[in-house]
């Protein structure tokens, strides 16, 4: 049997290599998200059976309410958490993009019912899916309830959402999700007392972290960019 050889240099090289590799491959998923901004996403979805050419006018609220956690019903309604400047930034950015897409805002929706209405809110709940089955529009107070003939007892339908489990099993939104929904006021489902959602935009994560104003503005613009079917200037 040969004598065991203890060559120092190769073993040292191997030891260094092993240590180096343990530093180089610390995980299967390196360089992941590090800041709240890294989690910002813009989600849009729409009813692809809808011909958006039939709609031309829209209504927009004058405030952005906070939608409380439905599991915490004692939370006071219409508790504002957004500064007025942020609310106006959100609404003005939406209005600018809608107008740029060829839509006309109806300033007095009670007198002249528009074709669609946009509802805008900020969630405080982790689960966006909760809002699908929750009457969060009542948190507009007098703005939505009783307006346009669709008052108490009416809800919002999502007939194009697969299996009725839309979002709920797909996404979990953290606190600070800006929700924008376009509701069809021309074709109400009177049997089920529902007005259907035509388009949904959700901006998640934009309310936390730094530089929120720019991220909110950019996020709303992105929501419209990725929804070209809303652009009446480009429709055939």
């Amino acid at each position: 049997m040969k004598e065991f050889k203890a060559s120092r240099l190769p073993m040292l090289v191997l030891a260094i290599a092993v240590v180096a590799m343990s530093a180089v491959i610390p995980s299967c998923y390196p360089n992941g998200p590090e800041s709240p901004e890294d989690f910002d996403i813009i989600v849009t979805a729409f009813d692809d059976d809808t011909d958006f050419n039939q709609f031309n006018t829209y209504a927009l609220p004058d405030s952005v309410p906070v939608v409380p956690d439905p599991e915490n019903p004692n939370q006071p309604k219409n508790q504002p958490v957004l500064p007025d400047s942020i609310q106006q930034l959100i609404l003005s950015t939406i209005e600018t993009n809608m107008n740029n897409y060829g839509w006309t805002r109806e300033i007095d929706p009670n007198t002249n019912p528009p074709d669609v209405t946009l509802v805008v809110g900020v969630s405080e709940n982790d689960e966006y899916g909760a809002y699908v089955s929750y009457d969060w529009y009542s948190y507009y107070g007098g703005w939505y309830v009783g307006w346009g003939g669709y008052g108490a007892g009416w809800g919002v339908g999502y007939p194009w959402a697969p299996s009725g489990i839309y979002y709920t099993q797909t996404y979990s939104y953290t606190v600070g999700t800006l929700l924008i929904e376009m509701l069809d006021l021309k074709n109400p489902d009177t049997q089920n007392m529902e007005v259907n959602a035509l388009w949904v935009g959700a901006l998640n994560g934009l309310m936390s972290g730094t530089n929120s104003e720019q991220r909110i503005s950019d996020g709303i613009v992105q929501a419209f960019i990725q929804s070209p079917y809303l652009n009446k200037n480009q429709q055939p």
Partner: peptide, 30 residues
């Protein structure tokens, strides 16, 4: 074992039977 990673801002269509829509954001790919 080889690990690849990349960060990119992308807009992607998602249609997985549960959700159908478009998702934009910073993507971390591995």
């Amino acid at each position: 074992w080889q690990v690849f990673d990349e960060q990119t801002f992308e807009t992607m269509n998602v249609n997985n039977g549960v959700f159908s829509g478009v998702v934009s954001g910073k993507q971390f790919r591995y």
